[in-house]
Nucleic acid binder design. Structure first.
Length: 742
DNA sequence: AATCGGTCGAAAT
DNA sequence: TCGACCGATT
């Protein structure tokens, strides 16, 4: 997958950093990558069709982590296979089935561990899993899109449109597509590495100074990529040299062959061009236009019809259905929200109505009659679970006499306000809901509402308020004093930690000490030695260009406006439950319970950290953390979470807690300020100047590695940065680590 | 020096 | 499954 060895080639411009750096920005996520990681934890269950949501929860935890650090997640799912990759996929499918058979065999023999290993290979990430996850994302008001084809291209497209400010993915192909800012190796703490296109000129392994995107792309393709296997014995280094020398692939290939050693297949050049065109023009979904467009606007002399390998175009309605996750990206058929238990697939429209309609829920038929008791997976997975959790039971009782029919949405805001714990009664939400009218949305919304309590239940059970010690899940089990996992965390953070004292609560300390971390200020000046100019030496293959005005997509300067429009348009489908006020209280209750438990966990969590704290700044920070947590994690509100960049928070109707959260948010934002603004406006990319950095910058540099020296960024004038001094003290000690890293 | 093929540990609970 | 790493090969 991806380009072999590319990470190694770009080692020197990989900057260790933390999600906090991207606070206030929107990051695109390769959702299948996360889902796949999540399946590791429950591979056996998935293969055996046993009920599990661990893989979904894994992703949701990551999403929450992003939100916690002020990042707006935007999840992007893979869609259909490109025609050229269909062979690969069937091979994989075959391998998976073999692994499944072998794994099950081992399992029967009692060799569980081996079976486990084998079954991990058998897991496939399905559109259904994506759909499950999407339902949760809707509830959390997290933006997402299902790409018509590859998520890679979709992500890069979104980045170019300015809809996202960076891409979280492990796939180095992203850079070939033209990603500008790639975040990889994200761990559960928020640490990751950044590869920024603007830094390419600083690459030490090879000199990319003066390289265009086209040069880079061709080098990668030449060394072997998903669309074209490499010429044997020809790797990245050789590809680099020949592109550097000849710039032109045609000539490079001829010379490589002449020099002997390399045997270039007859059709290689043709395939090469195809591969390049796939990287350039693969079809993606434009959320603004509501239809498919090519990743790069086609040049006038490019006839898309001839490019079958970039993926077929599709009807805008279908494309939108796929993008929303309503339609299977491959079959284009509606994805049933019901688990595909027996292979008997019920058309999802009918199914949804069945589940969501009031008639059905009120029918005399006992709900359990819908299920075969023997089929445990069904019972477990179905949203209308026959055995409601305690909280569900209470809710059901409470609403035993109330109608399930939808009532006018205008009643909604009242419902929200009357809810005791729902402090974030977002005016934005209410307002937008009134606009929601799409029937399809309504149908799935109703379903979601019913489904929600069920899907909550696992989380609920794990974090019931009766267990005040449980913690937010993305904080990993660390706050239990000196637990093994605490040590594990400490180990992973050793670079930063080594000079700090030993705290009773590593995790809390971590969060506390880093909350106001100025690392966000170390933004990459996007200019400096320019690498990305598109000066294509080869006329026969067109290069990426910024979206042209003629394109249906948005131009950068119009983005804010368009983004707003997109939001407005999108909200109905995102605001699923909220379209049904009657169901809302139930859902709310469940959510509140879950969320208050999350909140409680934070409270349980924080004092420990605070008590172990040794710095006076800690007390200043604690309330902010709590409130930020509350506003962002506990009750994701569109007013906070899905605010278009640049627009101002709607303060006037925020609750005090929200306001605190907001102030914390804006605070962290101001500290991380030039993130977006620095884009292209920050001054020099002066390598030698790195050593003259102010000490406060050095703080950050210290634990970020030498590459950060390349990116001076001075923006520390946050007057109420309470703990900057306290903060500075311990971190500066880390300079040792820096010298180590350097 | 670069590439290739193999092994190993981490991923997740 | 992926990467990092090692040793063999050219």
């Amino acid at each position: 997958m991806g380009i072999k060895g590319l990470h190694g080639l770009l080692k020197s411009i990989q900057k260790p950093c933390h999600l906090r750096k991207f606070s206030g920005e929107t990051l695109g996520v390769d959702a299948y990558g996360w889902l796949h990681r999540g399946t590791v934890a429950c591979a056996v269950d998935l293969v055996l069709d046993r009920p599990t949501t661990k893989h979904i929860d894994f992703v949701l935890n990551r999403v929450r982590m992003l939100i916690f650090f002020g990042v707006t997640p935007y999840l992007v799912f893979d869609g259909d296979n490109l025609p050229s990759k269909s062979g690969t996929e069937s091979e994989r499918q075959k391998k998976r089935e073999e692994s499944k058979a072998l794994g099950l065999e081992l399992y029967k023999k009692g060799r569980v561990a081996e079976a486990y290993q084998e079954l991990q290979k058998a897991v496939d990430v399905t559109p259904y899993m994506a759909r499950q996850l999407i339902e949760e994302l809707k509830k959390m008001k997290v933006e997402y899109v299902v790409a018509p084809y590859e998520a890679d291209a979709q992500l890069v497209f979104l980045e170019r449109q300015g809809i996202i400010n960076g891409i979280i993915s492990e796939d180095s192909d992203m850079l070939v597509f033209g990603a500008r800012r790639l975040l990889s190796k994200l761990d559960q703490h928020g640490d990751c590495i950044e590869i920024n296109r603007a830094d390419f000129a600083a690459c030490k392994e090879v000199s990319l100074v003066g390289w265009t995107d086209a040069d880079f792309r061709r080098m990668c393709i030449l060394s072997g990529c998903d669309y074209l296997p490499n010429i044997s014995k020809l790797g990245l280094k050789t590809a680099y040299r020949s592109i550097r020398k000849y710039k032109n692939v045609d000539k490079a290939l001829r010379m490589l062959q002449l020099e002997g050693q390399y045997r270039v297949p007859a059709d290689y050049l043709e395939n090469f061009k195809q591969a390049e065109l796939t990287f350039l023009y693969q079809r993606v979904f434009c959320p603004t236009a509501g239809k498919l467009v090519t990743l790069t606007p086609p040049e006038t002399d490019v006839t898309l019809e001839n490019l079958t390998f970039i993926g077929d175009d599709m009807d805008p309605d279908i494309a939108t259905g796929v993008a929303r996750g309503d339609l299977d990206p491959t079959t284009k058929q509606p994805i049933s929200l019901k688990p595909p238990m027996t292979g008997k697939w019920v058309p999802s429209i009918g199914r949804r109505q069945t589940f969501g309609s009031s008639a059905d829920l009120k029918s005399n038929k006992p709900i359990s009659s819908f299920f075969t008791p023997k089929r445990v997976p069904l019972a477990e997975l179905d949203p209308n679970s026959l055995t409601p959790s305690p909280s569900q039971q209470r809710l059901l009782e409470r609403h035993a006499n109330s109608s399930w029919e939808a009532s006018p949405v205008s009643a909604q805001p009242n419902v929200i306000r009357s809810a005791p714990a729902d402090r974030v009664s977002s005016p934005l939400l209410g307002g937008l809901e009134r606009n929601s009218s799409a029937q399809a949305t309504r149908a799935s919304s109703t379903f979601s509402s019913v489904k929600r309590p069920r899907l909550c239940s696992e989380t609920e059970e794990e974090s019931l308020p009766t267990r005040p010690n449980c913690r937010s899940r993305f904080f990993t089990p660390t706050s239990q004093g000196s637990s093994p996992s605490g040590e594990k965390l400490a180990r992973s953070k050793k670079q930063r930690k080594s000079t700090l004292g030993v705290f009773s609560d590593e995790a809390a300390e971590e969060i506390m000490s880093q909350l106001p971390d100025p690392s966000g200020r170390l933004e990459n000046p996007q200019d400096g030695p320019r690498v990305g100019h598109e000066a294509d030496a080869e006329p026969h293959i067109k290069d990426c260009k910024p979206p042209s005005p003629s394109d249906l997509t948005v131009r950068p300067e119009a983005q804010e406006v368009h983004k707003e429009e997109v939001r407005q348009k999108d909200v109905p489908r995102l605001a699923d439950i909220d379209t049904d006020p009657k169901v809302f209280p139930q859902v709310l209750d469940c959510r509140v319970e879950r969320q208050s438990s999350t909140l409680l966990s934070k409270f349980a969590f924080l004092p420990k950290g605070a008590s172990s704290g040794q710095r006076s700044g800690l007390d200043q920070k604690k309330p902010q953390l709590e409130n930020t947590t509350h506003a962002r994690t506990v009750r994701p509100s569109p007013g906070i979470l899905i605010r278009p960049r640049g627009s101002s928070p709607k303060r006037q109707r925020l609750t005090p807690l929200q306001r605190l959260g907001q102030s914390a948010l804006s605070r962290s934002r101001s500290m991380c300020l030039p993130t977006t603004d620095t884009f292209g406006s920050s001054s020099s990319h002066d390598i030698t100047g790195g050593m003259s950095l102010r000490s406060d910058i050095m703080n950050t540099v210290a634990h970020q590695g030498s590459e950060d020296l390349l990116i001076p960024n001075s923006d520390e004038d946050d007057p109420d940065h309470q703990s900057s001094d306290e903060k500075r003290e311990p971190v500066r000690l880390d300079l040792k680590k820096f010298s180590f890293a350097a």
